[in-house]
């Protein structure tokens, strides 16, 4: 059945988009461990990273199962090259200062939370189950990142300035989260993964509310970068993979 086959290909793709984004963001956040501005924050960020790594194991595990070619989550995470990665460009942005990291987290969480909520209604029960588990974690991520964006936006002149700079810099990478391509549309029609553009109203509302309270201003700029979901990445991802995959590449026949 050609249709069913195509849908499996799309599903593999869609699951990689979810799992690669949590993988790459989890990795970025974990880079802070031991270097955060205060111990309490160091511990809190590690919790976020741990949640994202856990979600990665589930999404990529399911992707590997759907693919049915004998790979597993680790194989997908550690042995694919950049062009096979399907994460959003937003999450591969380097950490920058702590404000930049928090702003990136907030812009992603504001999408991630409603997306997972919608995924709980997926016709695929495996996806609905992962979304239900991840949803609780991400609800807290959003509460935390939104709160910190507000506090720092409305803090000192310096913290305000840094948060505004981060927002300006990251804004052009937000559009990709809500853009749909053929894969997205096929999955949405099958009731498996909602179309990214359907998340737009919720994302807009949360972001507008939080930025207003944070006394920050979204840039007018309309141009949005895209390509991550299709495997066209920034230079940053390659460096991340060089670090992340090094052991698996250097000792390919080993178990750890």
């Amino acid at each position: 059945m050609a249709v069913a086959l195509d849908l499996d290909v799309a599903l593999f793709e869609g699951l990689c988009r979810l799992g690669d984004s949590t993988l790459v963001l989890g990795h970025r956040v974990s880079e802070w461990c031991g270097h955060a501005p205060v111990l309490e924050e160091d511990i809190a960020l590690a919790n976020v990273a741990l949640d994202l790594i856990g979600q990665t194991q589930l999404w990529l595990g399911l992707a590997a199962e759907v693919e049915g070619r004998g790979r597993d989550a680790d194989r997908l995470a550690f042995r694919r090259d950049v062009w096979d990665f399907r994460n959003l460009l937003l999450v591969e942005r380097p950490n920058g200062d702590f404000g930049h990291t928090l702003m990136r987290q907030f812009l992603f969480d504001a999408w991630h939370q409603p997306m997972l909520k919608a995924l709980e209604d997926s016709h695929d029960p495996r996806i609905a189950a992962i979304a239900a588990k991840a949803g609780k974690e991400v609800a807290y991520h959003l509460e935390r990142s939104a709160d910190l964006v507000i506090r720092l936006g409305d803090g000192t002149a310096e913290s305000h300035g840094r948060m505004q700079t981060a927002l300006d810099r990251l804004w052009p990478y937000t559009g990709e989260m809500m853009m749909s391509d053929d894969t997205d549309r096929a999955l949405a029609e099958a009731g498996i993964i909602p179309a990214p553009d359907s998340i737009r109203p919720q994302w807009d509302a949360v972001v507008a509310e939080v930025l207003a309270e944070a006394t920050l201003k979204a840039p007018d700029q309309a141009y949005m970068h895209k390509g991550g979901k299709q495997g066209t990445h920034s230079e940053h991802l390659g460096h991340m993979l060089a670090t992340m995959q090094w052991l698996q590449r250097a000792y390919p026949d080993s178990t750890w």
Partner: peptide, 16 residues
């Protein structure tokens, strides 16, 4: 633990 106010103290307590 240390926190700037009560709300953040609750969040930190959850994490720590």
């Amino acid at each position: 633990l240390h926190a700037p106010d009560a709300e953040m103290a609750v969040k930190h307590a959850r994490d720590v």
